[in-house]
């Protein structure tokens, strides 16, 4: 069984979920503590109390996204566990869904974005990224898991996807992403492709070998990468 690893930094195992993050404002730190303690009620209350007067996007940009990015950074340094990252993303996704329901025209649906697990059956990495992107207000099509190279290419071409996120867990699938990327580039060169998952973390040169535009180390990285790529393609 392979699991998602983290960075070279050594974990302190202080990840009980309640340690204060002093780099954040008191409000963001409170929200972060609520999330990594998996306290849905408190997280919802914080959002409700602090986002009354703002627009949903103001709330996303000033509260939810920065906190999710902070949780992601703390995972990278070994300060919180993947289970906490997952639950944080799910809670934020639920909150954002109430503010910006699916289909709400204010969601960011351009450029067209999709995510898939190539060949593998494990979906946790994809689910975390999806939650974080949706919590960031993006519309992302979920192609699911266990897709073959041909299936994924057909979907991307047919849907004219501009930003594709490929999640893998096992090394052979990560290596196969090269074929996906090469063939998509031949047909639809404007598509940007971000890869992620354990093999790319254990082998930091692999994402370049497969020809990806970028690698998402953690879900929070992906949010930033998508934001920058979206600006780039829309320029």
């Amino acid at each position: 069984m392979t699991v998602l690893p983290t960075s070279n930094s050594n974990t302190s195992d202080s990840g009980q979920g309640n340690r204060k993050n002093h780099s954040l404002s008191p409000l963001l730190a409170e929200m972060e503590n609520a999330l990594i303690s998996v306290d849905r009620v408190r997280a919802i209350r914080i959002v409700r109390d602090s986002c009354i007067t703002g627009s949903p996007f103001m709330c996303l940009e000033t509260l939810i996204v920065p906190v999710l990015e902070s949780v992601g950074r703390r995972w990278e340094t070994g300060d919180v566990a993947l289970s906490q990252v997952y639950m944080s993303g799910r809670i934020c996704e639920e909150i954002v869904d109430t503010m910006l329901p699916a289909g709400d025209p204010r969601r960011v649906d351009q450029p067209r974005m999709a995510i898939a697990v190539l060949e593998d059956q494990h979906t946790l990495g994809k689910r975390i990224v999806l939650s974080v992107l949706r919590a960031g207000g993006y519309v992302v099509t979920d192609y699911g898991y266990g897709l073959s190279v041909d299936q994924l290419i057909d979907q991307v071409i047919s849907d004219k996807v501009i930003i594709l996120l490929i999640s893998t867990l096992m090394l052979p699938a990560a290596i196969r992403s090269k074929e996906v990327i090469t063939r998509i580039r031949e047909i639809q060169p404007q598509t940007k492709i971000i890869v992620g998952g354990a093999p790319f973390i254990f082998d930091p040169l692999l994402w370049e070998e497969v020809g990806a535009d970028a690698m998402g180390y953690a879900a929070s990285d992906t949010l930033d990468l998508v934001r920058r790529m979206a600006e780039e393609v829309q320029r």
């Binding site: 699991v3 690893p5 990840g15 009980q16 990594i36 566990a81």
Partner: peptide, 15 residues
């Protein structure tokens, strides 16, 4: 015995 979920990468210590 494979126990990846026992790792601090996967679960916080209190859990």
């Amino acid at each position: 015995c494979a126990d990846p979920i026992a790792s601090p990468d996967m679960t916080p210590i209190d859990l």
